[in-house]
Amino acid sequence: MELALQCRCGALRGLVSHPAQATRAVCYCRHCQAYARLLGDAASVLDAQGGTTIVATLPGHVRFTQGADRLACMSLTHKGPLRWFSSCCRTPIANTAREMKLPYAGLVHTCLRDAGGTLPAAYGPVRAQLNTGSATGPVAHSPWRNLLAMGRLMRIIGGGRLRGAWRATPFFTAEGEPVAPPQAPPASGPGITV
């Protein structure tokens, strides 16, 4: 089964396979909040408490079918993840590790489409709320639930690493370089702190 992925303007399109193997979470970290603001789309990316819904999967489960040349990335810090977006309409696409050998792609909900019309129908329920200390409002979360979700994610990533799944990625070249050079974020503006 494959589900659609696309930027807002439709120039960048792709498919996500194995949705049942993905783990859905909401991240409230300052960097996810800054990323949404830097792309100019905080209202559609962040929930009322400043969280971004992420679908964590293997990069090999993502393939771009149109407009892959529109894929761009930035890094908010020298050691932080690569944050991928479409250069055409600045839709957040995914977060990946800086190194190709860590097979992780956190797809941002704004680029995901599915026939059922909802993320829960396509990717299951939210299994974790992460970095709730940076939330802009109260967030009900369970440390045990987060621990179980992280265990599930580590099994997916660890299994992918052992099977060599890190080699199949649309975000890196065969030599391990990002397919688009990471940009430094623009200077912070009002309401943007990294």
Rank of each mutant, 00 (worst) to 15 (best):
G10K: 12
L12P: 12
R13D: 00
G14H: 00
A20Q: 13
Q21Y: 00
C27K: 02
Y28C: 03
C29Y: 15
R30S: 13
H31R: 05
Y35I: 01
A36E: 04
G40W: 14
G40D: 10
A42T: 02
S44P: 01
Q49H: 11
T57W: 10
P59M: 05
G60Q: 04
H61N: 15
G67S: 01
R70P: 07
A72C: 14
A72E: 12
C73E: 04
H78P: 15
K79N: 15
R83C: 04
W84N: 01
S86Y: 00
C88N: 07
C89K: 02
A94K: 05
A94T: 02
A97L: 06
L102P: 04
Y104F: 15
L107H: 03
L107S: 00
L107P: 00
T110C: 12
T110M: 09
T110W: 09
C111R: 05
L112P: 05
D114C: 15
G116S: 14
L119N: 12
L119P: 06
A122D: 03
P125R: 13
R127G: 10
T132S: 03
A140P: 09
A140F: 08
H141N: 05
P143H: 10
N146V: 01
L148W: 14
M150G: 06
R152Y: 09
R155T: 12
R155A: 14
R155F: 13
R167A: 15
A168Q: 04
T173Y: 05
E177H: 12
P178C: 02
V179A: 03
Q183E: 15
Q183T: 09
P185F: 13
S188P: 09
